[in-house]
């Protein structure tokens, strides 16, 4: 009863939708115990992935600048102080 691996690019939303449908299926109480366990295990995998998707986004704010060769490079964007702010 080996489950197919979750696709590495599965989005939060798609994983969430599959998790919701698994819960609904499991709730219906149909199928054998083995099937229920298999569904449960996939549900656990999906919920782990959802949580990973939410936490894996790195907190950063960057701005592009031109280097000496005219290529774009990223540097940290520091919020300007109010005196710099044009309305």
């Amino acid at each position: 009863m080996k489950q197919p691996e979750l696709p590495s690019n599965l989005s939060f939303e798609d994983a969430m939708k599959e998790l919701e449908s698994i819960v609904a299926k499991l709730d219906s109480g149909e199928g054998t115990l083995d099937e229920s366990i298999t569904l449960f295990q996939r549900g656990v995998e999906l919920s782990k992935l959802c949580s990973k998707r939410l936490e894996d986004i790195e907190k950063r704010v960057r701005i592009l600048t031109d280097d000496s060769n005219g290529n774009k490079k990223e540097t940290d964007f520091l919020p300007t102080d109010e005196s710099n702010t044009e309305k």
């Binding site: 939060f12 969430m16 819960v23 499991l26 229920s36 366990i37 549900g43 959802c50 949580s51 939410l54």
Partner: peptide
């Protein structure tokens, strides 16, 4: 909201399995 949606499903998932075991 994302987190609470996920927690609801995690909770329901476990309940559903326990329910399934208790039926048997």
């Amino acid at each position: 909201e994302c987190l609470s949606r996920l927690h609801v499903q995690q909770d329901r998932l476990t309940r559903a399995l326990l329910h399934s075991v208790s039926i048997r």
